[in-house]
Design a protein around this nucleic acid. Structure first.
Lengths: 242, 242
DNA sequence: CGTCTAGCCTAACGATCGTTCATGAAGTTC
DNA sequence: GAACTTCATGAACGATCGTTAGGCTAGACG
C-alpha cells in the first residue's frame, strides 16, 4: 500500500479525489440534507467501481465534497451506508415488479412482465443493483440475514410465477428451481453489461430477455409475440391513466 | 475496525484462524512446495468467502499454517496470488471447453458441449470461478486488462458458436450478442448456487442448462434431445479411448 | 439580544494493513 | 566440513483504516 511516501497528517485536507468520474460536490458551506444525497451518490459510485472494502470513508467524503467526520452526522457507520443503499434498492425493485405483475392476467404474461420490469430496473439502477448483489458478504451477520431473506422472497415470486405457467400448460420446465436461478441470473446480469450509449435501448434489451426467458421455458413463438404485445398495451394503458 | 482492544505486538503470533471452515495447515516445520499449495488453497477459500480486499495476508498465512512473511517467499505480493489464481482458472476453463467442443460436429452440438463443460467446470471449481469473476476490479490496470481480454476471447467463442447455429438454421436469436451475455451469465452463476450435497447432481444441472440454452435459442425439443444424446455418447467414447 | 441546535470542521486515536529486514535452521554441493 | 541455497521466522516500518472528541458557525427561536 505504498502510495503517498510523505508522512502527512492523518486528515488529508482538501485531497484530490482519488479516481475517475465521480460526482464531486462543490466544496461550499453547509448544505443540509443535500449532503446526505451527495454521500449516497458517492457511495454508490465508489462501492460499484471499487467494492465496499476498497472504498474508504475518506474517499466517499472527498467525492461528496465534505470532510470524513461529516458523514457520521448522517450515518452511524460505513456499513449503515451500505445497508441503506441495499434496502432502498430491494424495496423499490420489489414494488416495481409487483406493480408490473399486477398489470396483466395470465401466468405467462405475469412472468414476462416481471422479467421485463426486472431488466428495466436493473438497467436504470445498474450501480445500485450491482452493489446490492455483490456486497452481501460485506455485511455483518444480522443485516446479511435480513437482506438474504428479502432476496429469497423475491426469487420465490419468480419461481411461483413459473410454476403457475407450467400448471396452466403454457410453459414447460424440467426443474423450476434451476430455471428460476438461471432466469434471474441472466436478467440481473444486465446491470453488468448494459450501456445506455450502446446500440440497444433498454426497452429492446428487456424485450429480448422476455423472448429468451419464455423460449427457455418452451413457449411457442406465437405465445411470445402475444405476451409481448400484451405487455406493451398494458404499458400504454398505464401511461394514459397516469 | 475496533476488534481487538488489547494492544498486542504487530504479529499476532499463532493467532486463531479468523473464521469458519478454512483449511488449517499443521504448524509443523518447513514443508517446501506444499506450502505454496496451502497458500493457494487458503487464498481461494478466503477470497471467495470474504472478498480480496477483506482478506489480509495475515489471515491467509494463518489459514495456511505459516507466518505472513513466508508468503513472500512464494509470491511477490498479495495481488500476485490473485493473478495466479485467476490465470490458472481461465486457462484450465478454456482448455476444457475447447476440448469438449472439438468432440462433436454440428454447431448446435458444439454450443451444447461448451455450455455443458462450462457448467460442469464452474460447479467443480466454484470458489475459483467466483473469485475470477468477481475480483477483476481488484486488479491493477495491467493485469486487469489482460484478464478482461481473456474473458472477452472466451465470450467470443460462445458467440461465434451461436452464430454458426443460426447460420445453418438450427438456432434462432434476435441478437446474438445479448444471447451470449445471457447464456454465459446463467451458466457462470451455477458457481454461485450449486451445492454438491443438494438434490441435483452436477451432470443433471449441466443437462438442464443445455435444455434452457438451446430452448432460448429456439431449438425444437427433438433437436435438444438429439444433442443431449450425442453429448453423452461422445463422453462415453472419450472415456473408452482413455 | 441571548440561547440553542444542526451541520460541518480539524485533529487525532488505536488498530490493522501490505510489505521488508535481519536472522537462522535444514539440505545440498563440493 | 565449509560454502551455499532454500524455506521459514519474529519484529518492525510507514501508511491507511474506521471512528471519535471537541470546537466553530450560521440560522432558528425565545
Amino acid at each position: 500500500m505504498a502510495e503517498k511516501p510523505t508522512a502527512a497528517p492523518d486528515t488529508a485536507a482538501p485531497a484530490p479525489p482519488v479516481d475517475g468520474p465521480v460526482p464531486e460536490g462543490d466544496s461550499d458551506t453547509r448544505r443540509g440534507p443535500e449532503t446526505r444525497e451527495a454521500i449516497d451518490l458517492a457511495a454508490i459510485e465508489l462501492f460499484a467501481n471499487r467494492g465496499y472494502h476498497a472504498t474508504s470513508m475518506r474517499a466517499i467524503a472527498s467525492a461528496a465534497g465534505i470532510q470524513p467526520a461529516a458523514i457520521y452526522h448522517w450515518y452511524e457507520s460505513k456499513e449503515a451506508i451500505l445497508i441503506g443503499l441495499q434496502d432502498d434498492f430491494m424495496e423499490e425493485l420489489t414494488e416495481a415488479v409487483e406493480a408490473a405483475v399486477d398489470r396483466v392476467e395470465t401466468p405467462a404474461a405475469k412472468l414476462a412482465a416481471a422479467v421485463r420490469e426486472h431488466v428495466v430496473f436493473h438497467g436504470l439502477h445498474a450501480r445500485a443493483a450491482f452493489v446490492t448483489d455483490s456486497e452481501i458478504r460485506a455485511l455483518t451477520d444480522d443485516p446479511r440475514r435480513t437482506l438474504i431473506a428479502k432476496r429469497d422472497d423475491y426469487q420465490e415470486r419468480f419461481r411461483s410465477l413459473i410454476e403457475a405457467g407450467v400448471d396452466d400448460g403454457t410453459l414447460k420446465t424440467s426443474e423450476d428451481r434451476v430455471a428460476t436461478y438461471a432466469i434471474l441470473l441472466q436478467c440481473t446480469g444486465v446491470a453488468l453489461w448494459f450501456d445506455p450509449r450502446g446500440p440497444l435501448s433498454l426497452d429492446r434489451v428487456a424485450d429480448l430477455h422476455v423472448e429468451l426467458v419464455l423460449g427457455s421455458l418452451g413457449a411457442s413463438p406465437e405465445l411470445i409475440a402475444g405476451v409481448l404485445a400484451e405487455l406493451h398495451d398494458g404499458e400504454q394503458g398505464e401511461r394514459k391513466a397516469a
